[in-house]
Simulated scan of single mutants.
Amino acid sequence: MRYTTASNSAFITALYVVLVPLFLRRFDLRLWTALSFAVSGLWLLIHPSAEMNRGDLYTLVCAVAFALHIIAVEAYVRRSDVLSFSAWQLAMVAGALVGPALTEGYRPWSVAFTPMLIWALVITGVLATALAFCVQVWAQKHVPAQRVALIFALEPALAAWLSWLVLGERLDAMGWVGSGLITAGVLIGTMPARRADASFTA
């Protein structure tokens, strides 16, 4: 975020919805139609700039990592239990981040655990991370990776709608059209498929 804008970062990160089927080579007209709707909607909703910079390239690497994570979950989840898979996944990430956190000067004993901080930790740590990843792992036992990635495209649309509904933030006409296109793309892409999902069950 030091080298790019929030809108560019949000849009480029969401490109994993395209990268997942590309990496898996799962090509289907219905899926690509859905992706076209979703990516067009993301562009209208987020309003990224056309200029590329170093931060955008870093964010693209992040999008690739997100795509590879979705693919890896599909590859391994059928061999293990959902809870144990999720627990090990979270434990490995937490362990890997201890070193960088300490080098950045983080000292947990110096943190004041106020009610607001505890509530924020519950929301971000328990609900948005632990529970969310458990649900993703469970879902990927039944849903192919390319459809999971497409469903994830709803995230910015839902965030925009909730911000408008709960926080009173303004959502302009382009935002409504964009979020509508995203929703249409997800609906098209998650309809019962024939050939697209055959490779998943094979």
Rank of each mutant, 00 (worst) to 15 (best):
Asp28Met: 05
Gln89Met: 15
Arg79Gln: 15
Val111Gln: 03
Val135Thr: 11
Ile123Ala: 15
Ser40Thr: 09
His142Asp: 05
Ala72Ile: 08
Thr103Leu: 13
Gln89Thr: 15
Ser49Arg: 13
Leu60Trp: 00
Arg30Tyr: 05
Phe133Ile: 14
His47Lys: 13
Pro156Ser: 04
Trp88Ala: 06
Leu42Val: 07
Val148His: 07
Ile71Met: 01
Leu102Phe: 12
Val126Cys: 08
Phe152Asp: 07
Glu74Ser: 10
Phe37His: 00
Ser80Gly: 14
Val148Ser: 06
Ile71Tyr: 00
Phe27Leu: 11
Ala94Trp: 10
Tyr58Pro: 03
Leu121Ala: 13
Gln89Asp: 12
Asp81Val: 10
Thr33Lys: 04
Gly55Thr: 02
Ala91Gln: 11
Ala38Trp: 00
Ala128His: 15
Phe66Thr: 09
Val20Ser: 00
Glu51Val: 15
Cys134Leu: 15
Arg25Gln: 12
Ala50Asp: 09
Ala65Trp: 07
Gln146Cys: 06
Ala130Pro: 07
Val135Arg: 10
Ser40Asp: 02
Val122Ala: 12
Gly105Asp: 07
Thr103Pro: 09
Tyr58Met: 08
Gln136Tyr: 09
Ala157Asp: 01
Ile123Arg: 15
Gly55Cys: 02
Ala67Phe: 01
Leu150Pro: 03
Ser86Leu: 10
Val111Lys: 03
Gln89Lys: 14
Ala38Val: 01
Val98Leu: 13
Leu127Tyr: 08
Gly105Ile: 06
Phe133Met: 15
Arg54Cys: 07
Ala120Trp: 10
Val82Met: 10
Trp43Ser: 08
Pro48Thr: 02
